[in-house]
Design a protein around this nucleic acid. Structure first.
Lengths: 197, 197
DNA sequence: CACAAATGTAAGCGATACTAACATTGCGGC
DNA sequence: GCCGCAATGTTAGTATCGCTTACATTTGTG
């Protein structure tokens, strides 16, 4: 991170890391290129040598998030021989990323980075993470046709994703009263994810 | 909208309406107080006579959205004697608002307006819409205790909400291939919302 | 070793949210 | 009716931000 002279050394990587920290700290909107530049001790124009614009930098941060997610999915599948346990563990990985790194998760799913002009470095890892989820659902019931698998994947994913959105958005604050704990709710959500059709 | 002289007439209401249109057009981030002021033919500082800041204006727009939602819920309950049909219709109302007015929906659920310092004009209608949803789920099974009802409400709401988020975010673009249509998916989601536990 | 490409800087443009000081209007009490 | 004051609007300014242009320095390569 320390500068060695006129040139930074690896400003591109430093920007990505600093942006990731800022995202985790205050959400995607809290990332200011000017701030990052000042933090890293370079001029405000320097970041533009490495990223076309703010979106391009955030896209790179999001891409790392999707790579992480695909990895977590892979581990969940690898360590569980029983497909049902594997799927439950996969769902847990999704919840885990969302609750452990809420800022990153928000960047990945709530921002407009995933438009038609999204770079391949972003769409690639995102597609890989979807494929892993799809495979985990398919393994439960190898007989089912593809449309059924996709329908199950989407409904299950929806339940998980919606739960995350509502919890992270504080929408369940007044409602998760005793004796309804968050942990209990998570188990209920995971149960629902497993229901076929 | 036309000015009658030095004073606008009802700038506050005009700002809310113009902001609502801007939200629907380009999402919450597309609302610029300067733009609204110019459109309405007043100075850039005029809006601050009616709203403390940008957030306060957007909160008012969101509040109207929650009022609309609570109303829709009420209609769904009123016109269906069968509680199961009523719940399905309630869920449809949620999806309807989300797909008919995606910008408003995003403002209501994806922005940070609902913090601890949210004005009563926003938290009130939001709580009312939750109560209506809760009641629709409770009507299905009057025997169940409150924790069970809440758990069912939250899981069902999660499924609906997540589906909306994924569709609106374009995350299902490549996956909703034939013969898996969006309409079919909506029915599957509604089915899942009805499943007890 | 010279020169070109890569990478950095300085300065500035235009947009934005918001504030402070001042101007105009319209309404309620006399 | 009119007069003062609160409500409402304006002008001008601050600070931040993304981004661009023109120029400076460094580094690697033929």
């Amino acid at each position: 991170m320390a500068r060695k002279g006129y040139h930074h050394g690896d400003l591109r990587a430093a920007l990505i890391q600093a942006a990731a920290e800022a995202v985790e700290q205050g959400g995607p909107d809290a990332v200011s290129l000017r701030d990052l530049a000042k933090t890293l001790g370079v001029s405000t124009a320097a970041p533009y040598r490495h990223f076309a614009d703010r979106r391009a930098l955030l896209a790179e941060v999001a891409a790392q998030g999707f790579e992480q997610l695909a990895e977590d999915y892979g581990r969940a599948a690898a360590r569980n021989p029983d497909p049902k346990v594997a799927l439950r563990d996969t769902a847990r990985a999704y919840l885990g990323l969302a609750f452990r790194r809420p800022g990153l998760f928000r960047l990945m799913f709530d921002s407009d980075l995933m438009g038609p002009d999204a770079p391949a470095s972003l769409t690639g890892p995102a597609a890989r993470s979807w494929e892993a989820l799809h495979a985990a659902v398919a393994a439960i019931d190898p007989q089912a046709d593809d449309a059924t698998i996709k329908r199950r994947t989407i409904t299950g994913w929806s339940t998980l994703h919606g739960f995350i959105a509502l919890v992270s958005g504080g929408r369940l604050k007044g409602f998760m009263t005793e004796p309804l704990t968050e942990a209990e709710l998570v188990e209920a959500i995971l149960d629902k994810t497993l229901i076929a059709d």
